Simulated assay, not measured.
Amino acid sequence: MSSPDFAQRPPWTRPGFIAAAVLLLAVILIGVLVAVFAIANNGRSGAAATSTPTPGSTPADSSTTAPGAPEAVPTAPPADVRWELVGQTAVPVSASSGPSRTGETAAGYAHTPEGALIAAAQISTRAAYSAGRQSWEPTIQQQFEPNADRDRLLAALREAGDTPADPGELSQIAGFSYQSYTPDTAVIGLVFRAPSAGTPRYHVLSLTLLWRDGDWRMMPPPGGSWTSINRMTSDLIGVVEWGAR
């Protein structure tokens, strides 16, 4: 005779029922895991299939330069340059890189590293005291970024008056280096050879140009003083030699 205690227990507490339930639960759990695994694999396969180019398709160009990212710069002088005098200083002119408009100022430069280089040479030379007020005043007013440093530079030049340089006493362009370049901002080390009968001396102006309103414009030197962006050197190591011959 069955034990009264066992006979009165609910069926789901009896050992046989529990074993069957455990087995059924294990089967269900295995089925769920298999389904989840299959879905995950299908998702990965679909992603791989999506990223694999179909025959005849063109893969995305991973070399595309992001906006504002640095670009490759020339390691040789521009090929189509001729040299013209502004006062006593020779400046470059290029049919492909500019300037395309000359008068009180020289403007209209290509939106390229070469265009920025020629703009740096033209604008800095025309903004120099030695170019004369008829050159430096409109150049600084129209082709420099307007700020307090520009106003200080103008004030200093106006105070200095207008004394012409003696022949042979001005530095001439001797080379360049691109310190950085993006389509928006170019920083160019423009190298000048100082007049000297002995050991060659060079000074390097670190010039910053910004692409604004369809042309290159120059940032005025800090404090309105060219000496703030000038350094002296006795060699041309790391510089691309360039200048009038």
Rank of each mutant, 00 (worst) to 15 (best):
G98I: 13
D235L: 13
R44Q: 09
R217Q: 14
R82T: 12
G214P: 04
A121C: 14
S100M: 15
L205P: 01
A47N: 02
H203T: 05
T112Y: 10
I188A: 01
S225N: 11
F192T: 01
R82H: 12
S130R: 12
T58G: 00
A48H: 05
A60Y: 10
E114W: 01
L33R: 05
D184M: 00
A66N: 13
R217S: 07
Q8H: 09
V187R: 15
G87H: 11
A40Y: 08
G175K: 01
A160H: 01
A131V: 03
A35N: 12
A7V: 09
L236V: 12
R193M: 11
A106Y: 00
V187P: 01
Q8E: 10
M1S: 09
V34E: 06
Q172H: 04
A35E: 08
T163E: 07
G214Y: 03
E137N: 06
R44E: 07
V81C: 07
A26Y: 09
T13L: 15
G132H: 11
S130W: 10
R231E: 06
G175N: 02
T125W: 11
A107Q: 13
V36K: 13
G224L: 04
N41C: 02
A35I: 12
Q122T: 15
V32L: 09
S2D: 12
Q122D: 15
G87K: 09
A110S: 15
L25E: 15
A244V: 08
G224A: 03
F192L: 09
A38Y: 03
P15H: 07
P138G: 09
G46V: 10
V187S: 07
R82V: 15
P221T: 02
G31P: 08
Q141I: 03
L154P: 02
Q172P: 06
E71I: 15
W211L: 07
S100K: 15
S62Y: 01
Q122F: 02
Q122E: 12
A40C: 06
P220T: 02
P59N: 03
R193K: 13
W242Q: 02
S2E: 13
A106R: 10
A128C: 08
T105H: 03
A35Y: 13
L209K: 05
E145C: 00
A38I: 04
